[in-house]
């Protein structure tokens, strides 16, 4: 057999063997055996000395091609086997993605605090400071400074937990108004604050009454505050809380510390104003009380009502949350059943 034929044979057999290999090891062995220094190709090339000189280059090229072709066949097969191995491994690793997750639980912020913070963020955006205030307050700030002297009939509107003749559990976050006005330096600009917090009334607890609940008081005092400013502010608030399509309306009311005083209704977010059970078929829902700060209240804080005017509003987070989420019993907020609490995860 000529060297030429020997090489061609080697190529044919080598490629054939590579194709038939089932394991990577076989291919490695094949490479070592066929292409190694002791392999048949190397061996065959030793017979080059018997080949006429003019044919040598041709044989040399052929020998290289045979090597390359076998090498390529081995690599191709190796690639094929590797792919099969990975595929098999992946198939084995398949899991049931519908099995439950390993829990990564965040806690749930109390829905009342979510409601309060939503409103706080709205007002912070409008440049309001969030103030604190005392839960145990003096009669002086809770009533007298709000134009509610002792024996004023308006004291009937709210029954009070007293600690002593002069100390009480605040019945309204408006109790903060006097303190904030006193503390404010009007040369540095207007007073714009909201004061969220807990208030107390001497009430029996039932589905709609609670001896403890939250309020957010808002107060702006500046040189040009008007009823229109109050309406615009509360209109924007109600759209923020209850949706962009809401409208508000003012109805005359009475609070001793504002004049004029209004109740504020928002158009029903459930029926859009057509009338339903939630709005008692009126299309409107009462959501807060407001007004222009009574001149006496300004005066008692050393502010000249001829130069300055103020607007004030008070709203109830419990009421907002009850309306917005259909909570029917105010006591649910204070029972803290985690199943109740956790349903509000991330609503605000």
């Amino acid at each position: 057999m000529s060297l030429n034929d020997t090489l061609k044979n080697l190529r044919e057999n080598g490629i054939d063997e590579a194709k038939r290999a089932q394991r990577l090891q076989e291919l490695n062995d094949l490479r070592v055996n066929l292409l190694g220094k002791k392999g048949p190709i190397t061996k065959a090339l030793r017979g080059m000395k018997d080949v006429p000189a003019e044919e040598r280059p041709e044989i040399g090229t052929l020998a290289n091609n045979v090597k390359n072709d076998i090498q390529a066949a081995i690599e191709e097969k190796m690639d094929e086997l590797n792919k099969a191995i990975v595929a098999k491994k992946l198939a084995e690793e398949k899991i049931d993605v519908t099995l439950p997750a390993t829990k990564q639980v965040q806690g749930t912020k109390h829905i009342l605090n979510q409601t309060i913070e939503d409103i706080e963020q709205f007002f912070i955006g409008l440049g309001y400071e969030v103030a604190g205030g005392y839960e145990v307050e003096e009669d002086h700030y809770n009533f007298e400074r709000l134009n509610i002297p002792k024996n004023h009939p308006a004291r009937d509107m709210q029954d009070t937990f007293y600690l002593s003749d002069e100390l009480l559990m605040r019945t309204q976050t408006s109790a903060q108004e006097g303190r904030d006005m006193e503390a404010h330096d009007f040369t540095k600009g207007p007073l714009k604050m909201i004061s969220p917090g807990v208030v107390y009334r001497r009430d029996d607890d039932d589905a709609t009454h609670s001896h403890q609940f939250h309020q957010i008081e808002g107060l702006v005092v500046d040189k040009n505050i008007s009823m229109a400013d109050l309406k615009g502010t509360l209109d924007a608030l109600c759209r923020h809380v209850f949706g962009p399509d809401r409208e508000i309306r003012f109805r005359p009311s009475f609070f001793p510390f504002t004049e004029p005083s209004v109740e504020v209704d928002v158009s029903c977010f459930n029926c859009g104003g057509e009338g339903c059970r939630i709005c008692k078929y009126t299309g409107w829902i009462e959501v807060l009380g407001a007004g222009l700060t009574h001149p006496n209240v300004l005066k008692m804080s050393g502010i000249d009502p001829n130069e300055y005017s103020g607007m004030a509003f008070g709203l109830g987070p419990e009421r907002f949350a009850m309306l917005k989420y259909g909570v029917n019993d105010i006591r649910d907020f204070y029972l803290n059943d985690v199943r109740f609490l956790e349903q509000f995860k991330g609503v605000n």
Binding site: I124, L126, A228, D229
Partner: peptide, 16 residues
């Protein structure tokens, strides 16, 4: 009544 917002000096809002 029109809807307006208080038009006084800028104030910085925020928490304590």
């Amino acid at each position: 009544l029109p809807n307006t917002l208080p038009a006084g000096m800028e104030t910085r809002g925020g928490y304590s």
